[in-house]
Deep mutational scan, measured.
Amino acid sequence: KILMCPEHETERINMYCELCRRPVCHLCKLGGNHANHRVTTMSSA
């Protein structure tokens, strides 16, 4: 099953924010609420 980002509906979730303990997409990481947070790949989470 492909998970889609709730904030960016057209983007797949492919990362996990370690600080917030939630999955995020690349747009969340690049310029969103998680820009300065440490993220890992979903396969490592």
Rank of each mutant, 00 (worst) to 15 (best):
Lys1Tyr: 02
Lys1Trp: 02
Lys1Phe: 06
Lys1Val: 04
Lys1Ser: 03
Lys1Gly: 04
Ile2His: 07
Ile2Glu: 10
Ile2Leu: 08
Ile2Gln: 08
Ile2Val: 06
Ile2Gly: 08
Ile2Lys: 05
Ile2Ser: 05
Ile2Ala: 06
Ile2Phe: 12
Ile2Tyr: 02
Ile2Pro: 03
Ile2Thr: 08
Leu3Cys: 10
Leu3Phe: 10
Leu3Pro: 07
Leu3Met: 15
Leu3Gly: 11
Leu3Asp: 14
Leu3Glu: 15
Leu3Gln: 11
Leu3Trp: 04
Leu3Lys: 12
Leu3Tyr: 11
Met4Trp: 05
Met4Pro: 04
Met4Lys: 10
Met4His: 07
Met4Cys: 09
Met4Arg: 06
Met4Ala: 05
Met4Ile: 09
Cys5His: 00
Cys5Asp: 02
Cys5Gln: 00
Cys5Ile: 00
Cys5Glu: 01
Cys5Asn: 00
Cys5Val: 00
Cys5Met: 00
Cys5Lys: 01
Cys5Tyr: 00
Cys5Gly: 01
Cys5Ser: 01
Pro6Ala: 09
Pro6Phe: 05
Pro6Tyr: 05
Pro6Lys: 13
Pro6Ser: 10
Pro6Thr: 13
Pro6Val: 09
Pro6Trp: 03
Pro6Leu: 06
Pro6Gly: 07
Pro6Asn: 07
Glu7Phe: 07
Glu7His: 12
Glu7Val: 11
Glu7Cys: 05
Glu7Tyr: 03
Glu7Gln: 10
Glu7Lys: 08
Glu7Ile: 15
Glu7Ser: 08
Glu7Thr: 10
Glu7Leu: 07
Glu7Arg: 08
His8Tyr: 00
His8Trp: 00
His8Gly: 01
His8Arg: 00
His8Ser: 01
His8Cys: 01
His8Gln: 01
His8Asp: 00
His8Met: 00
His8Phe: 01
Glu9Phe: 03
Glu9Ala: 10
Glu9Thr: 14
Glu9Val: 10
Glu9His: 09
Glu9Lys: 15
Glu9Gly: 12
Glu9Tyr: 09
Glu9Ile: 10
Glu9Gln: 09
Thr10Tyr: 06
Thr10Leu: 07
Thr10Ile: 10
Thr10Val: 06
Thr10Gly: 09
Thr10Arg: 10
Thr10Cys: 09
Thr10Ala: 07
Thr10Ser: 09
Thr10Pro: 11
Glu11Tyr: 15
Glu11Lys: 04
Glu11Thr: 07
Glu11Trp: 02
Glu11Arg: 01
Glu11Ala: 03
Glu11Leu: 05
Glu11Val: 07
Glu11Pro: 00
Glu11Cys: 01
Glu11Met: 03
Glu11Gln: 09
Arg12Leu: 11
Arg12Trp: 04
Arg12Ile: 07
Arg12Ser: 03
Arg12Gly: 10
Arg12Glu: 11
Arg12Ala: 04
Ile13Pro: 15
Ile13Arg: 07
Ile13Gly: 15
Asn14Phe: 15
Asn14Gln: 13
Asn14Ala: 10
Asn14Gly: 06
Asn14Trp: 05
Asn14Pro: 05
Asn14Met: 14
Asn14Leu: 13
Asn14Asp: 07
Asn14Arg: 06
Asn14Lys: 13
Asn14Glu: 14
Met15Thr: 09
Met15Cys: 15
Met15Gly: 13
Tyr16Leu: 10
Tyr16Asp: 08
Tyr16Glu: 05
Tyr16Ser: 07
Tyr16Val: 02
Tyr16Thr: 15
Tyr16Pro: 08
Cys17Asn: 00
Cys17Leu: 00
Cys17Gly: 01
Cys17Gln: 00
Cys17Trp: 00
Cys17Thr: 01
Cys17Pro: 01
Cys17Glu: 01
Glu18Asp: 15
Glu18Pro: 04
Glu18Tyr: 03
Glu18Val: 06
Glu18Gly: 07
Glu18Leu: 05
Glu18Cys: 05
Glu18Trp: 05
Glu18Lys: 06
Glu18Ala: 07
Leu19Gln: 12
Leu19Arg: 14
Leu19Tyr: 13
Leu19Asp: 13
Leu19Met: 12
Leu19Cys: 15
Leu19Glu: 15
Cys20Lys: 02
Cys20Met: 02
Cys20Gly: 01
Cys20Asp: 03
Cys20Arg: 02
Cys20Pro: 00
Cys20Gln: 02
Cys20Tyr: 01
Cys20Ile: 00
Cys20His: 01
Arg21His: 07
Arg21Cys: 08
Arg21Met: 08
Arg21Asp: 14
Arg21Ile: 02
Arg21Pro: 03
Arg21Lys: 15
Arg21Gln: 12
Arg21Trp: 03
Arg21Gly: 08
Arg22Asn: 04
Arg22Met: 06
Arg22Ala: 12
Arg22Trp: 03
Arg22Glu: 13
Arg22Gly: 08
Arg22Ile: 05
Arg22Pro: 03
Arg22Leu: 11
Pro23Phe: 05
Pro23Lys: 07
Pro23Gly: 12
Pro23Trp: 05
Pro23Gln: 08
Pro23Leu: 04
Val24Met: 07
Val24Trp: 03
Val24His: 06
Val24Glu: 04
Val24Ser: 02
Val24Ile: 15
Val24Gly: 09
Val24Thr: 06
Cys25Asp: 02
Cys25Pro: 01
Cys25Met: 01
Cys25Thr: 01
Cys25Ala: 01
Cys25Leu: 00
His26Leu: 06
His26Ala: 14
His26Glu: 11
His26Gly: 14
His26Asn: 05
His26Tyr: 15
His26Asp: 14
His26Met: 04
His26Val: 11
Leu27Glu: 09
Leu27Cys: 05
Leu27Ser: 12
Leu27Trp: 05
Leu27Pro: 03
Leu27Gln: 13
Leu27Gly: 07
Leu27Phe: 06
Leu27Arg: 12
Cys28Met: 01
Cys28Asn: 02
Cys28Thr: 01
Cys28Ala: 01
Cys28Val: 02
Cys28His: 01
Lys29Thr: 11
Lys29Val: 12
Lys29Ile: 07
Lys29Arg: 11
Lys29Trp: 07
Lys29Leu: 13
Lys29Pro: 10
Lys29Gln: 13
Lys29Asn: 14
Leu30Glu: 15
Leu30Phe: 05
Leu30Thr: 15
Leu30Trp: 05
Leu30Lys: 15
Leu30Ala: 15
Leu30Tyr: 02
Leu30Ser: 14
Leu30Pro: 12
Leu30Gly: 14
Leu30Asn: 14
Leu30His: 09
Gly31Val: 09
Gly31Met: 06
Gly31Trp: 02
Gly31Thr: 12
Gly31Leu: 04
Gly31Gln: 11
Gly31Ser: 11
Gly31Tyr: 06
Gly31Asn: 10
Gly32Lys: 07
Gly32Gln: 10
Gly32Ile: 04
Gly32Asp: 12
Gly32His: 04
Gly32Ala: 13
Gly32Phe: 04
Gly32Thr: 09
Gly32Asn: 05
Gly32Trp: 04
Gly32Pro: 11
Gly32Tyr: 03
Asn33Met: 11
Asn33Thr: 14
Asn33Leu: 11
Asn33Lys: 12
Asn33His: 10
Asn33Phe: 07
Asn33Gln: 14
His34Ala: 03
His34Arg: 02
His34Met: 02
His34Trp: 01
His34Lys: 02
His34Glu: 04
His34Thr: 03
His34Leu: 02
His34Ile: 01
His34Gln: 03
Ala35Gly: 12
Ala35Trp: 03
Ala35Pro: 06
Ala35Thr: 09
Ala35Leu: 08
Ala35Asp: 15
Ala35Glu: 12
Asn36Thr: 11
Asn36Ser: 10
Asn36His: 10
Asn36Trp: 03
Asn36Glu: 13
Asn36Val: 05
Asn36Leu: 08
Asn36Pro: 11
Asn36Phe: 11
Asn36Asp: 12
Asn36Ile: 05
Asn36Gly: 09
Asn36Cys: 11
Asn36Tyr: 06
Asn36Met: 08
His37Ile: 02
His37Val: 07
His37Thr: 05
His37Leu: 04
His37Asn: 05
His37Arg: 04
His37Phe: 02
His37Ala: 11
His37Lys: 06
His37Cys: 11
Arg38Leu: 06
Arg38His: 14
Arg38Ile: 08
Arg38Cys: 13
Val39Thr: 14
Val39Tyr: 06
Val39Asp: 14
Val39Gly: 14
Val39Ile: 06
Val39Phe: 08
Val39Arg: 09
Thr40Glu: 10
Thr40Asn: 15
Thr40Gln: 11
Thr40Val: 11
Thr40Gly: 13
Thr40Cys: 09
Thr40Phe: 03
Thr40Met: 03
Thr40Leu: 04
Thr40Tyr: 05
Thr41Asn: 04
Thr41Phe: 05
Thr41Gly: 12
Thr41Val: 08
Thr41Tyr: 04
Thr41Lys: 12
Thr41Ile: 06
Thr41Ala: 08
Met42Gly: 15
Met42Gln: 14
Met42His: 02
Met42Ala: 15
Met42Val: 12
Met42Asn: 09
Met42Pro: 15
Met42Arg: 14
Met42Thr: 15
Met42Lys: 14
Ser43Pro: 15
Ser43Cys: 07
Ser43Gln: 13
Ser43Lys: 07
Ser43Phe: 03
Ser43Leu: 06
Ser43Val: 09
Ser43Ala: 12
Ser43Gly: 11
Ser43Glu: 15
Ser43His: 09
Ser43Asp: 09
Ser43Thr: 08
Ser43Ile: 04
Ser44Asn: 10
Ser44Pro: 13
Ser44Lys: 05
Ser44Ala: 13
Ser44Val: 10
Ser44Cys: 05
Ser44Met: 07
Ser44His: 07
Ser44Thr: 11
Ser44Gly: 14
Ala45Asn: 02
Ala45Leu: 06
Ala45Arg: 08
Ala45Val: 08
Ala45Pro: 12
